[in-house]
Write a protein that binds this DNA or RNA. Structure first.
Lengths: 337, 337
DNA sequence: TTGAAAGCGCTAACAG
DNA sequence: CTGTTAGCGCTTTCAA
């Protein structure tokens, strides 16, 4: 940690150019209001001194900035980076900048970044909440920060949200597996404090119940410690150790499915004859795996784009957008190439 | 874009609690210097008013903050997110926060984010330069911002850098392909303005020359528009259209290799008998693909961790760290499972 | 067109 | 232990 440096300020520039600070500020913000001659002098001074505006001071006066923040569960998950990309693209059009952070599903980390963003006066935040409790987000909203819930429907009217129907996604996967004759399904899921996970669980059970099965019998749900390949690996090991082993495996995301496939291969369990596998998100590599992965596709880019839309909207009234997912069937369930 | 909101300030809190602003500041920063009774009163006021510190003002006084910025080429590339993860982990230990941005290999975008970071007084920046010219980074350094070059060796002594030996990586891939009898290699590379790409090209050619081949004959280099799966797909189509088709394909990263494999499969070109494929980065999914991918592994997490180390170092003297890559051989070159 | 000066919200030095 | 106050760098009236 180096010692605090003394940055050159607007008054250094003013002195150098032989003008007042007000004039420097003018060439910076309203160049037309200043004589070309003096402007050139000031610009020369800026160049020589390598002057860079102090954003904090600027913002302190202005109150807020053209920056938005996003907090997702895991930047290492392609699903979230694709969503972030959608956000960035939309923000870019409006001249806004995105600050991206990852909560790692930890509410404290989420809170920390949210606070950082708020303290620095962002226009708004888009967040995939790490927990079911959104009161802190409502508070944030009440303090004048635009809040858009990402990837999950808002439990409260006042917060905007852009989501994908998670019950439908899980139900589609369930229907497909039932079609193929599977009657016991293991679900490698995240904790139900994450709404998407709770919804997918509900969707899965509802679909099974509709088909005349007892969900408590038909579904073995395992809660993953981490929603990535390592989590999927550990979860799959647990499934394999089960006495009455299910014949199909639904994974909370494709990263977990990757871990599952790896584990099944190591255990010499053929896919799908020994165990059918369904992922979630349909990330880029899903189609290219050793066993191409059946997965629930979500409109990632549009999700992010739309969220940024709501963030930037002139009308502060909250909106709630829900997209529909789509099951993409591949060899990990059908065995067909 | 909502209108500027009036945030509640420290003086609002002071008024409410019936104390001075100095006292409020004290309970915020040095709680021990204030009587428990008044502290409670102030804390109550903070709670009632939902007060949130104004970071800009705070920082304006302090001069700089415990935040670092990182600009990578593409956040959607797992290689970079893994590096970012290494950075974050190290920064976290020191109580620092990371602001992550993606330049998309565009120098203007890189400059924009760098400026944003600098204006907001970050302690330092870690950047994977989008161009070969680093004078703007030297200037940044001269202005007192810590600069660490990520994933490429510094061309100037004064800038710290953390890199992986790109010539060695490409050379290892070349040696492996030569061993297998390949004498013509297509290289799906990025523009040479990106140093890593230039170095890998040089390493590849040098290795071939050392083995007695004429690099101009043995290597067909194709420059990708985008360093991802789409780029790899387009590049591979070009390779397949070549009159004297090479027998091996080296890709600038695993994303491009993913696109290559997809394209080869669509064209019914068997891997590796019709075309051997080597990736770069050895990302998580490389081992799980339909044809497990031979790839050059880089120590991503350590790379980021080390970069953050340099950023945080007490000693401002520049260091230059180079890691060695490691070729991981899989079926996409050997055909063995 | 340019300059002088107030003030954004906060922290820290100094008085009381 | 608490209050007063200067000042961080900038933008923006208001005067000249």
């Amino acid at each position: 940690m180096p010692p605090a440096r003394r940055r050159t300020s607007i008054s250094d520039v003013a002195r150098r150019a032989g003008v007042s600070v007000g004039t420097v500020s003018n060439v910076l913000n309203r160049p037309d209001r200043v004589t070309p001659t003096t402007r050139e002098r000031v610009e020369a001074a800026i160049g020589e001194l390598q002057f860079v505006r102090n954003g904090s001071a600027r913002q302190l006066r202005a109150g807020t900035i053209t920056t938005a923040g996003a907090v997702v569960l895991d930047v290492a998950n392609p699903f979230f980076t694709d969503v972030a990309r959608g956000i960035e693209d939309r923000l870019d059009e409006a001249g806004y900048t995105l600050m991206l952070a990852s909560s790692d599903e930890q509410p404290e980390r989420e809170a920390r970044y949210l606070r950082l963003f708020e303290e620095h006066g962002v226009q708004g935040v888009m967040v995939v909440p790490a927990t079911d409790d959104v009161t802190h987000l409502v508070d944030l909203h009440d303090r004048g920060v635009r809040v858009v819930l990402l990837d999950r429907p808002s439990p409260v009217e006042v917060l905007s949200s852009v989501a994908v129907d998670d019950r439908a996604g899980a139900a589609a996967a369930a229907a497909h597996l039932l079609d193929l004759g599977h009657e016991r399904i293991a679900f490698l899921n995240g904790p139900h404090t994450i709404r998407q996970c709770a919804d997918r669980s509900a969707g899965l059970r509802a679909a099974l119940a509709d088909a005349g099965h007892d969900p408590d019998e038909a579904v073995v749900e395992i809660t993953l410690a981490t929603l990535n390949a390592d989590g999927g690996q550990t979860g799959t090991q647990q499934v394999l150790a089960l006495a009455d082993r299910p014949t199909a495996l639904l994974c909370v995301n494709d990263l977990a499915a990757l871990g599952a496939l790896r584990t099944l291969r190591a255990a010499d369990v053929p896919v799908p004859s020994g165990m059918a596998v369904v992922g979630y998100d349909d990330v880029a590599f899903a189609a290219e795996l050793a066993t191409p992965l059946t997965s629930v596709r979500q409109p990632t880019h549009r999700l992010g784009h739309r969220a940024a839309d709501l963030l930037l909207a002139d009308d502060p009234a909250p909106s709630h957008v829900t997209f529909q997912p789509e099951l993409v069937v591949r060899a990990s369930t059908t065995g067909l190439t």
